[in-house]
Design a binder for these strands. Structure first.
Lengths: 155, 155
DNA sequence: TAATTACTCTACTAACCCTATAGGGTAAAA
DNA sequence: TTTTACCCTATAGGGTTAGTAGAGTAATTA
C-alpha cells in the first residue's frame, strides 16, 4: 500500500535497552487480567498462581492487583483458597479503564488530555500549536481503540 | 456518539506532575521544525531566535537541532547570519520520521515494533499474548497518523 | 586578516520515575 | 488456632530526562 522509504537514523540517538513506552506495570496488569478472564470457574486465583504462570515478580504483581482491586476491577478473598477474581464480565472491562488505572492518562501530553487537561506553560496559542494538533489525532485514535477493546476481545 | 461512563480512579495512583509520555525533547523539536517551516524566506534561523520565540531552553534546543541535522532533516550554516534551515520541503517531512529520531520507536513495546523488534523474555506464545494483540492495534493506528501527517499539515 | 558570530562537542548534575524487594500486619477460612 | 493469603509501608538501585556549563571550531563579514 504505502511505499516504505528507507530512513537512516543514527542508532546512537536512542537507547536500545529502552523497553518502550508501556510500563511493565501495565503489561503485567493486562496479562494478569487476561489470565483471570480465561478461567472458566470463577473461584479466586492466588497471586502466586498468576505470578508463576505469567512469569511476573510476585511482590510486584501483588501491588498491581491491589491497585486494580481498589479501582473495582478486581475483588479479593482472604484466607485459604483465597485470591483475586474479576468483578465484572470480561466483556464489560474496557482496556481504556485498565490503561488509565495502571498507566495513567491516555493522552501523550496534558494539553490534549480529556480527563487531565493542563495548559502548557510555554504555549502561547494552543490552537496554533503543531504538537497539540498532532497529538490530538493520536489520542483520538488510541482512545477509540482502547475504549472499544475489552478484556474479552483479547483472549 | 459514545456514552461517557464515569470512572472512579484513585488519583494517588498516578503522579500529577507526570508530563505525559511525549518527551520535551520531541515536543521542542516539533515546535522548532514548524517554526522553520513557517518562514517564507529560507534564510538560516539562529538557535537563539527559535529558542526565544518558542520558549525553549537555548542549550537544550541546541542539542535537539543538532540531532535533526545529523539525520538530514535540517541543514546549518555557521558564522554571522548562520543558523538552521529545513533540508526538504515541509510536505516531504513526515512526522513518523521526526518521532523516530527524537522520541524513538513508535511502538509501545519492542515486541510490536517493526523496526526494532525484540521478543519479550517472559512471553511464551506471542500470538496468544493479550498485550501484544492490543498494542499492535495501537501501533498500527499511531503509525498511520504519523506517516500521513507532514510538517506542512501542522502549520 | 581579524573579529564576530554561531555552530559543535563533551561532560556533568539534579530530579524523577520505574522496577523490584523486604518485612511485617491483618483478615478469613479450615 | 493455625494456616493461608491478602494488605500496607518503606526503601533502594538503576536509568532516563531535562537542563547547565564551558570550551572549541568553522565560516562569514568587514
Amino acid at each position: 500500500m504505502k511505499k516504505e522509504t528507507f530512513i537512516s537514523i543514527n542508532v546512537e540517538s536512542k537507547n536500545v535497552l529502552n523497553l518502550g513506552m508501556l510500563s511493565r506495570k501495565t503489561k503485567y496488569g493486562i496479562k494478569a487480567l487476561t489470565y483471570l478472564a480465561r478461567q472458566e470457574d470463577q473461584v479466586p486465583t492466588s497471586i502466586a498462581t498468576i505470578a508463576e504462570s505469567e512469569k511476573i515478580p510476585h511482590k510486584f504483581l501483588e501491588a498491581i492487583l491491589l491497585e486494580l482491586r481498589k479501582n473495582s476491577i478486581l475483588g479479593s478473598r482472604k484466607g485459604k483458597g483465597g485470591g483475586y477474581y474479576l468483578m465484572q464480565l470480561p466483556e464489560k472491562i474496557r482496556m481504556s479503564t485498565v490503561h488509565r488505572i495502571l498507566e495513567g492518562p491516555i493522552a501523550m501530553l496534558p494539553c490534549v488530555s480529556l480527563n487531565f487537561y493542563e495548559k502548557c506553560e510555554d504555549c502561547v496559542d494552543e490552537d496554533a500549536c503543531s504538537v497539540n494538533k498532532l497529538m490530538i489525532q493520536v489520542r483520538d485514535n488510541t482512545l477509540a481503540i482502547l475504549e472499544n477493546q475489552t478484556l474479552h476481545d483479547l483472549i
